[in-house]
Design a protein around this nucleic acid. Structure first.
Length: 586
RNA sequence: GGGGGCGUAGUUCAGCUGGUUAGAAUACAUGCCUGUCACGCAUGGGGUCGCGAGUUCGAGCCUCGUCGCUCCCGCCA
């Protein structure tokens, strides 16, 4: 121990009574009783109560210093007259004999000792105060532990961590890049990596086999509550001579272990996790990231309509639209307003409406009025409905309709309190379509990324309808959060050229945009696959934090500004001149 | 780029149908208090009601504009 302290503020116990101790830290709280002053001294490790007596000449000095000042005190560890069971050091206190003041605190713009709801702007401007708060402090520590455990688990499975460049080339697909001007190359720019995607694939071509990296990724897109602007971290991994199942096994071990170790009392789904094909997920859950804590799901009930007697649906089904039916147990006795509210929600979303049949006390309610007894019974059988249940119906077609049905499922699940908040429910979403149709132009476009391998390879590209081709592309979803994305990569230049050709790009475009990688694939590339999970989102999930900024040390605000460091900011004319940059005013 | 919500003391908030001197808690300052642990009690300072215009005898409150924050859609291969 050095001269500042002999113990930390979380360390002393009843067994230390009668010892001399010196502690250093921040004044967390001060309770001045006039002739007796209690100081809660706080450091990274905990809080210890220190007592100043008015007989001491230190009394006036401690009275005068504000909370959050940094001091050290020394004195005898003594038994408390009344113990505090709420803190680990609550059996003892220190009778202060010496006091040193290292740094006096001004009047605080945010209060550290209480968990107040200060505005983001203030919290971010004084982030160093915000980070002193117990909750945020603990969040950051857990984040560190999760990252450390990720590293350990990957290493245990034979993976090696490598560093890939931060200054790299702008990539034409995907998110907007952050650009960095090149001083030595006037008029040219680096880009910060959106992900180490091409580098990790090049590592496979370079023979490194099992790669991982806790990788910073940069994307210049608008933020969300669960999406920090600018930068975020991924646990990025890639492996050679590997299939989709090999990646799943590694991730299920890594993420599965982390969830089990950090679940904090919640129940955790155990691997292997279920696989849900993309199209099934869109039909059943109306989402490619279904929250499986919600027991509700939908089925395609179109075949029950056409001659049902409910004319609107009958004719819409004949036009090729899809009727989705969702069985909800035990809500038949809900008032009319419950169903009307859902219907109103659908109309707000410009999605027609929500209809229902409810079996309540020997009668049926809803659109059953227009149907024969046989039809009503047929529907009841088809969905395994029982008396007291209701079936909700929506009708429509396409991706927008599917997504709406998913929001409806979430809404009903939330309103009825069906979601088990104390569990982690996982699944793999697999078999994403390789291409999709652009809603406006009708053009065929890559639906995820152009680097994944089409299922069926070249044969599928040559012989199948592009919109029917599936990719070896997968997501890992937990509680409705897309935690991970990955793919078996396309390592064959011919298939790459063909895949781009179908999307309307000729070979020169591929050579130009992905020159480094495509040329590498011409010199012996192993089949490879990988994935990456979002570290920030993983920590958010484990901590049940709805705001991503609360799991990041120094986050940017919604306008991608650092209010504490005042970034971004103007630079000198000389700096601009060196970079050959001219700022144009609007 | 589009939509919703919010903006009142350092901070968190209240403020009735538009009505006279805008309140509370906390923080801050001063005083009292020897067993508190969100210590207590008393006193005090602290306000461009985001900003600008309009309606009105009168605006924190209504209208319009504007700025800021925040959430959502777009976007995020």
């Amino acid at each position: 121990m050095n001269g500042y302290r002999t113990h930390t503020c979380g360390e002393l116990r009843a067994s230390d009574i009668n010892k001399e101790a010196k502690l250093a830290g921040w004044i967390h709280r001060k309770r001045n009783l006039g002739n007796l002053c209690f100081v809660d001294l706080r450091d990274h490790y905990g809080i210890t109560q220190c007592v100043f007596d008015s007989h001491s000449d230190l009394f006036e000095r401690i009275e005068a210093i504000r909370v959050e000042s940094v001091i050290s005190i020394s004195g005898e560890v003594v038994q408390r007259e009344s113990v505090n069971k709420n803190i680990p050091t609550g059996d003892i206190e220190i009778k202060v004999k010496t006091l040193e003041v290292y740094s006096e605190a001004d009047i605080l713009p945010v209060q550290v000792a209480s968990e107040g709801g200060e505005p983001e702007e203030l919290r971010l401007k004084y982030r160093f105060l915000d980070l002193r708060k117990d909750r945020i402090h603990k969040n950051i520590l857990l984040r560190s532990k999760v990252i450390q455990r990720s590293r350990e688990l990957m290493r245990e499975q034979g993976f090696t961590e490598y560093q890939t460049p931060i200054l790299t080339a702008s990539s034409p697909e995907g998110a907007r890049d952050f650009l960095v001007p090149s001083r030595l190359n006037p008029g040219k720019f680096y880009a910060l990596p959106q992900a180490p995607q091409q580098f990790k694939q090049l590592l496979m071509v370079s023979g490194f086999d099992k790669y991982f990296q806790i990788a910073p990724c940069f994307r210049d897109e608008d933020p969300r509550a669960d999406r920090s602007p600018g930068e975020f971290y991924q646990m990025d991994m890639e492996m050679s001579f590997a299939t989709q199942d090999d990646v799943f096994a590694v991730i299920e071990h890594t993420l599965g272990t982390i969830f089990n170790e950090f679940a904090n009392g919640k129940t955790v789904d155990q691997a292997p996790y279920i696989h849900i094909p993309f199209r099934e997920a869109m039909l059943k859950y109306g989402s490619d990231k279904p929250d499986l804590r919600n027991p509700l799901f939908m089925i395609d009930a179109s075949s029950l309509f056409g001659d049902s007697g409910f004319g609107v649906y009958d004719s819409m089904v004949k036009e090729g639209k899809v009727v989705k039916a969702m069985l909800v147990k035990g809500i038949a006795s809900k008032p009319r307003s419950f169903f009307d509210k859902l219907d109103g929600y659908a109309k707000e979303e410009d999605m027609g409406g929500v209809t229902y049949i409810a079996w309540a006390e020997g009668t049926t309610k809803g659109i059953s009025r227009m149907m024969s007894a046989e039809k009503i019974e047929e529907i009841k059988q088809a969905l395994n409905a029982e008396d007291g249940d209701a079936i909700l119906f929506v009708v429509g077609k396409g991706m927008k309709f599917d997504k709406f049905s998913g929001r409806l499922r979430n809404k009903v699940g939330e309103e009825l309190g069906l979601i088990d908040e104390n569990s982690f429910k996982m699944c793999w979403i697999v078999d994403f379509p390789f291409y999709e149709e652009n809603d406006e132009t009708g053009a065929v476009e890559f639906s995820h990324n152009p680097f994944s391998m089409p299922q069926g390879g070249m044969d599928a590209l040559l012989n199948k309808n592009p919109l029917d081709i599936l990719a070896y592309q997968y997501d890992f979803v937990c509680n409705g959060v897309e935690l991970l994305s990955g793919a078996v990569r396309n390592h064959q230049p011919e298939i790459m050229y063909k895949a781009f050709e179908i999307a309307g790009y000729d070979n020169s475009v591929v050579d130009n945009k992905f020159g480094g990688m495509i040329s590498a694939f011409k010199f012996g590339a192993p089949p490879h696959a990988g994935s990456a999970y979002g570290v920030d989102r993983l920590v958010m999930l484990l901590l049940d934090e709805p705001i991503i900024r609360d799991v990041i040390l120094f986050p940017l605000n919604g306008k991608a500004q650092d209010l504490m460091m005042q970034a971004p900011n103007v630079v000198t004319q000389q700096q601009l001149d060196e970079l050959h940059i001219q700022v144009v005013k609007d």
